[in-house]
Computed example of a mutant assay.
Amino acid sequence: MIRNKLLLAAIVAGSTVTVSQAALAYQAGDFLLRGDIAKTSPEGDASDNIESENGFVGSVGYMVHDKLGVTLGSSEEFEHEFSAGAYEGSFEQQPIDLMVQYYPLGGLDARVQPYVGVGANYTRFSGESDGLNIDNTWAAKGELGVDLFVTKNFAFNGFASYTDLDADYSLAGVSDEADVDPLTVGGGVTFRF
């Protein structure tokens, strides 16, 4: 009798572990909601003239396949201090991204779900100081990230992204192009529904 109870307990425990692990896998139809604190740093030719800034970034995603998702993301406006020669001022930048993300372990019972993404970035500039005008621009963007699941619907997230951003601007009537190329690194949480 005790042997049957132990066998039954082992079967129940084993099936519970199997079910909970399978529940961690990304699957087609899942919605992802991410919120992160990030630091964005210009890495292009203009990096000496533009200061780095911290802020909140977030995205909403949908898994179209176990290994493939689409996300729409944005952030609060990052305010950057800017200097060029004797000129000192500031501007605000707000990126909006549409990304396709590939999850190599999607559909598998892995607590760690790395991903890589590529997509389009639209950056809106505003709040330029007097004499400075920056045009909104489109750019290509790439991203690497990882979700570390704690429960079925909650994970910690970390990511790094790079945007190949060249912005046309005019300063005191002189027009030019700035090679900004922001590198953004952040961490936060992912909720899955």
Rank of each mutant, 00 (worst) to 15 (best):
D109I: 09
G69P: 07
A139Q: 07
L183W: 15
P182M: 03
L8I: 04
V185Y: 02
Q27P: 00
G187M: 04
D176V: 04
G58W: 14
L183F: 09
F78W: 08
L68A: 08
G145A: 09
F193S: 09
D179E: 14
A13H: 13
S20A: 12
E88N: 15
V185L: 09
F159E: 01
V180S: 10
L7R: 03
N4F: 03
L144N: 02
P114F: 00
T18A: 15
H65A: 15
S129M: 06
D109H: 01
Y62H: 08
L183H: 06
V146N: 07
F154H: 07
A178F: 08
N4I: 08
L183G: 06
V112R: 01
H80S: 14
S175K: 13
F193H: 02
S52I: 02
T184V: 01
S41F: 09
V185E: 03
D135V: 03
D179G: 11
N121G: 03
I134D: 01
D168R: 12
G188E: 00
G85F: 00
M99Y: 06
K39L: 15
G117K: 00
P42N: 01
Q101T: 10
V64Q: 13
G106E: 00
P182Q: 00
K5W: 09
Q101Y: 03
S20P: 15
G186R: 01
N54G: 13
T190W: 01
P42Y: 00
F149Y: 14
S83T: 11
S83H: 07
H80P: 15
A178D: 03
V185A: 07
L33C: 10
Q101N: 13
